[in-house]
Design a protein around this nucleic acid. Structure first.
Length: 271
DNA sequence: CCCAAGACCTGGCGGC
DNA sequence: TGCCGCCAGGTCTTGG
């Protein structure tokens, strides 16, 4: 599920419940995630105070004085806060029980997510060390994209989805941002000029920011007793709209595959 | 180094 | 209703 806006919304939703709270117990019912859940998590996290929750790309970091829990939601992961005890359902793999009877529960049907317990600088961990800049940071701009794309033949959509270039741009927002920037997704990254990259960087920021804001207002209740936090009811211009008219020019939205991912674009508006 | 394809895993959907 | 193939919001690993 999660692209960057979903992860950011999750962070904002759970932070008030976990920051400043002490972990009492960690229960791992299924440790076979993308990587085995760190055995140290259940041994070392209890007793620790969660100082803050941070986000880096699509990772969430839970800082304590003695270590950091690194969480990725993969394709189908979610976390929620339970205020009342409730038996775990299928795919609810991990519980972080905290003071005051508050429970953080991790669910991930496809098990593409991950949970690590790190005792050294988490940003130096191999999974995080070579990540590109945050898309909403000032350093991510058209000049940055232009510089890093010179000489590269990869399709600009795949270039944009490369976390070493920029984090947090998944399939939905790559499709949407390219549409708003008027760039055909299959064009070679090295063949896109500076002005167009400036439009693209701006579109990435706009589209992510708008989705985060919708996430904040639609706000899903992370403590609701039932029902999954829904996906953003967002304004998608091309994603999932293959065969339907372009909202700008009326031409039919094209469906294709790039890097084995569903790709949508308007041939008239994107060149 | 760069790039495309394969891998991991489960569930939902459409078609027969 | 049942089975089958295909699809899905991610990203690391492999091989050319």
């Amino acid at each position: 599920m999660p692209e960057l806006p979903e992860v950011e919304t999750t962070k904002r939703g759970i932070a008030p419940y976990v920051e400043g709270r002490r972990v009492e117990a960690v229960q791992v019912r299924e440790s076979r995630l993308r990587w085995p859940v760190s055995p140290q998590l259940a041994q070392q996290m209890p007793g620790q105070l969660i100082q803050q929750v941070r986000r880096r790309g699509k990772y969430l970091l839970f800082d304590t004085a003695s270590g950091c829990m690194l969480l990725h939601l993969g394709m189908s992961g979610s976390v929620r806060v339970l205020l009342e005890p409730r038996p775990p359902e299928k795919h609810e793999h991990v519980d972080i029980a905290m003071a005051g009877g508050i429970l953080l529960r991790y669910k991930d049907p496809r098990r593409f997510g991950s949970l690590h317990w790190l005792t050294t600088d988490p940003l130096q961990h191999p999974l995080l060390a070579s990540l590109g800049p945050e898309p909403l940071a000032a350093e991510f701009d058209g000049d940055y994209l232009y510089r890093h794309s010179r000489g590269r033949k990869i399709a600009v959509k795949n270039f944009l989805m490369n976390a070493q270039i920029v984090v947090g741009v998944g399939n939905i927002y790559a499709n949407e941002a390219l549409y708003h920037a008027g760039i055909a997704p299959g064009r070679a990254a090295g063949a896109v000029g500076l002005q167009r990259y400036r439009r693209l960087a701006a579109a990435v920021k706009d589209v992510l920011q708008a989705a985060i804001e919708v996430g904040g207002t639609t706000l899903r209740d992370f403590t609701a007793a039932e029902g999954e936090p829904g996906y953003f009811s967002q304004q998608l211009y091309v994603y999932g709209r293959g065969g339907e008219p372009c909202l700008n020019c009326g031409a039919l939205v094209q469906t294709s595959r790039l890097g084995q991912r569903a790709t949508y674009h308007c041939r008239r508006c994107q060149r």
